[in-house]
């Protein structure tokens, strides 16, 4: 199972990042999340990155993309890099009611596939 992002439904509220962090270390923050909001504010360009075990999944407005370690997106700013240090998404395997990010999102952006 993998987490999937329907980027054009996203409104940038970012609660998924904080929900993920709560799953990872039981606090509210965004720095320990397996999800990372990518934002170029002046262009209003945004999407979500998900750190998977062996790849980096990008849910972008233009569509989905998988990157392997070391690969980079042309034109991406510095905020795209820190997620490589994060813990990989485990789809909240130990949560009875499903992934916290899916439950927290008000817009139906996130789902599990596979």
């Amino acid at each position: 199972m993998d987490l999937k992002v329907d980027s054009l439904k996203c409104t940038g509220c970012r609660i998924c990042e904080f929900a993920c962090n709560y799953h990872q270390d039981e606090t509210i923050s965004s720095i320990g999340s397996s999800l990372m909001f990518y934002f170029e504010e002046k262009k209003n360009y945004y999407g979500m990155m998900v750190k998977r075990a062996k790849t980096l999944y990008l849910g972008r407005p233009e569509g989905e993309q998988l990157l392997k370690p070391g690969e980079q997106i042309e034109g991406a700013g510095a905020s795209a890099k820190p997620i490589l240090l994060r813990v990989a998404c485990d789809c909240c395997a130990d949560e009875d009611d499903g992934p916290l990010c899916v439950r927290a999102c008000p817009y139906g952006v996130l789902s599990l596939e596979g």
């Binding site: 054009l8 409104t11 940038g12 509220c13 970012r14 609660i15 904080f18 209003n44 008000p106 817009y107």
Partner: peptide, 17 residues
Amino acid sequence: THRNNAAYNCPYAAAAF
């Protein structure tokens, strides 16, 4: 309008870019 944005943890997207 390009996209409607929400503030942190807001269940209604009340801002229009």
